[in-house]
Design a protein around this nucleic acid. Structure first.
Lengths: 101, 101
DNA sequence: AAGAAATATGAAATATAATTCATATGAGTT
DNA sequence: AACTCATATGAATTATATTTCATATTTCTT
């Protein structure tokens, strides 16, 4: 696969807001407004983030009335995040960066 | 796990040069100079990238004579990259971004 | 069809990350 | 200890990504 593809995909996971959105969508499907409320970040910002997640099929969406409901592509994303958790436990017991923030 | 941790980890995979390095190290362990030659990017640039990969334990290193030999942490990285390949085949048959570059 | 609610989009401003260049450090050699 | 080769590091520059703000679309409601 091209380096560019990885780049585009992982850029989404390298962004705290996008990870935050993913984490909200783990709990269940949500509209943009619900995400705005739950995360406390302004709407256009959330929309931009969603559009980037959508373009890699990390999330999908469907229209419901006036709203657009977003769902997480759990099949791909959950195992990847789980792997990183495992990696961290195994290899990053006392990494420096864990101390920040 | 903290959003910050994901951020730090995935930033490495969201960078074409770092992915390039990972891809070289798949083939086998290499010194900095070997990477410089094989990738054709200047030394300090490679070193900066390696330092960032090292800090997440995506690569490890050991000294051998004057050189420092880098190895890929295959246990974590190979399955993750494989997953993305699979994700792309399954969900991104005609994504727009694939047309670029 | 006019208005309102929900979301998306574009462009400018800002923040963050990558690259470059000069130089430091460290390990082997003479 | 001085020299050389290999690598690392810091700071400035440059490139890239994110945020913000204004506004456009879309769909429902009346």
């Amino acid at each position: 696969m091209s380096y560019y593809t990885y780049h585009i995909f992982f850029r989404n996971l390298a962004n705290p807001l996008k990870i935050r959105i993913i984490s909200e969508l783990k709990k269940g499907d949500k509209s943009v407004n619900q995400l705005v409320r739950d995360i406390g970040i302004e709407q256009s910002n959330i929309s931009h983030a969603l559009s980037s997640l959508r373009c890699c099929n990390i999330v999908t969406s469907k229209i419901k009335g006036k709203a657009r409901i977003y769902s997480l592509n759990k099949k791909t994303i959950l195992p990847i995040l789980k792997m990183i958790d495992k990696h961290e436990k195994e290899f990053c017991k006392e990494c420096v960066y864990k101390k920040r923030k």
